[in-house]
Nucleic acid binder design. Structure first.
Lengths: 305, 305
DNA sequence: GCCGAGCCGAAAATATCTTTCATCTGTGAC
DNA sequence: GTCACAGATGAAAGATATTTTCGGCTCGGC
């Protein structure tokens, strides 16, 4: 696209294609050859592309204290067939400028941030978390966990607090593809159930801190009963990994007072859990596909027209 | 005291300002509520913004085999005053795409994808979902919902299935900053509790389809009892919005057999919920900060060394 | 002071966009 | 299967925006 700039530079109305974003430069180049009124128009356009792109010919004429004809003449001089096309180019330029200053949101969320900033920052942070998680995930460990889960007789998932919701999410999805999976948030029930596990079963513990006793305990029991154990944690050196055959590491983003760690750890955990799920669904495709279809079917009547 | 159900139904132009670059997402969100011809127009626009921005109404009508009127109607549905403005937005979008990103891994997840590809694709898709959601979120509606929630006597959140987990996530977090919030997954209990709500209370319904009866019912009851109602849904024209004072739209990504819609809708819902939470935390900072600190404190002893 | 060259804008002419309205198409009731 | 209705659709009229035309006007030179 730099080619366009080169070709149609300072070429006035004779220029072959209109310029995309080299508008400011073109204005400066052509300004000397412009009449006073046209300079006013060109200046307005160069200074505030976004604002001008919102104006009609008449509007811009008034805004610059000139006439429609002058505006059109200026557009022509800048290389466009007419004002309509200049306006389109202006809109494009404005959009580019807008997106250009995206990395302005790297700061923490402050108490007085306007709501739009909050949205932008949170979205950015969570995107970052996803990228970090994907980059840091050990596909070997993940593959091993998938292999174990795909053929497991039964899958138990442990998690409390925010991680409990992730555990439930995983269990829900595995159930949907016909596997026998349970999520346990109650530590006592978790341990009680863990005792039932044996070789060929899979136990998955989800804890960001890696040191949540309520989650480690059932995993330990499962481990000791011969089940294949998986830990999804942000601390690969945490206590939970003692009893884990496979360790899936989640990433941790910086946190602040208004942005508890729970948010990014949850995002990270969910990505890991999704990967695990899709991996298992691939391996069990023969049974997973019809099971998924059946579960959609069953829910259809719950929707209002 | 019963309130009238909103008349402006199925109204795409409910959003105050038009979208800048959230267009692709908006098309996907609104497509289901479009008529056949309008879908053709929307599709053309989404697939080739640059090309379409070069066409006049008549041109685009011919190109899509429809009429000018349909093109204008589509533009309106997408939130623009008319075709002229859609065209400007299109030009902006085209410029952004031109200068911006390289379209990475756009293919769907296949049954035989290696695990590393699964991770990359899932992460990419979820990042995309986050970007779309942030771009499409109406900050006015969000702000209104935040204001209501920040001063609410009590907050009830409804959601079933996958959305139920999101509802719980929100309630958990609000509880942590000292607000009275409950998540209800049981439709009966939800309605029973909704009856208790009155003006000054807030009810939030979370449903991707916008038509989940089990969630709509309690929201309707809350609405009729005078509570401020909020809908978090992927279908801004869905039945649930009848009873919603504020509508927060989540984005929908393409889905495939191995990537159920539940995944991206959950990601999108969580972002919205996080924004809501942080907004409320800002407004109630005086009480939120110490409450957060206290809850961390209380959990500390649950961690093993 | 007078003359001409070229700038400038008002208004006409044209293109484009929007609205209206009659027709058509699909859907559900009987 | 047929009928009637609601909503979708497009043709054409109506409203705006853009482009062109054309005559007045300014400014510099003589």
């Amino acid at each position: 696209m730099t080619r366009d700039v080169k070709e149609s530079f300072g070429s006035g109305p004779g220029g072959p294609p209109p310029a995309p974003a080299a508008l400011a430069a073109k204005v400066r180049t052509l300004a000397p050859s412009m009449t006073r009124s046209m300079q006013r128009v060109a200046e307005a356009v160069a200074n505030d592309p976004a604002g001008c792109s919102a104006l009609t010919v008449t509007g811009l004429a008034e805004h610059t204290g000139t006439s429609e004809a002058t505006v059109v003449r200026t557009a022509r001089l800048l290389g466009y067939p007419g004002y309509r096309d200049l306006r389109l180019a202006l809109a494009g330029l404005a959009a580019q400028q807008q997106s250009g200053r995206a990395p302005a949101i790297t700061t923490d969320i402050a108490v007085d941030d306007p709501i739009a900033d909050v949205v932008a920052k949170l979205a950015y942070d969570e995107q970052q978390t996803l990228a970090d998680t994907a980059a840091g995930l050990d596909t070997g460990q993940l593959g091993a966990a998938v292999s174990a889960a795909a053929v497991a007789r039964r899958i138990d998932v442990y998690g409390v607090g925010a991680s409990g919701l992730v555990a439930q999410d995983l269990a829900q999805k595995l159930l949907r593809i016909g596997l026998i999976a349970h999520a346990h948030s109650d530590p006592h029930l978790a341990v009680t159930n863990a005792v039932q596990l044996r070789a060929g079963d899979v136990a998955i513990a989800i804890t960001h801190s890696g040191s949540t006793g309520d989650v480690i305990e059932p995993l330990r029991v499962a481990f000791e009963h011969g089940a294949t154990t998986v830990a999804i944690t942000g601390r690969p050196d945490g206590a939970v990994t003692q009893y884990a055959d496979h360790i899936l590491t989640t990433s941790t983003a910086r946190e602040s007072e208004l942005r508890p760690a729970a948010m990014s750890s949850r995002t990270s955990q969910l990505l890991v859990v999704d990967c695990l799920f899709v991996g298992v669904a691939q391996r069990t495709y023969e049974t997973a596909a019809p099971a998924l279809a059946a579960s959609y079917e069953a829910l259809a009547h719950r929707h209002r027209r």
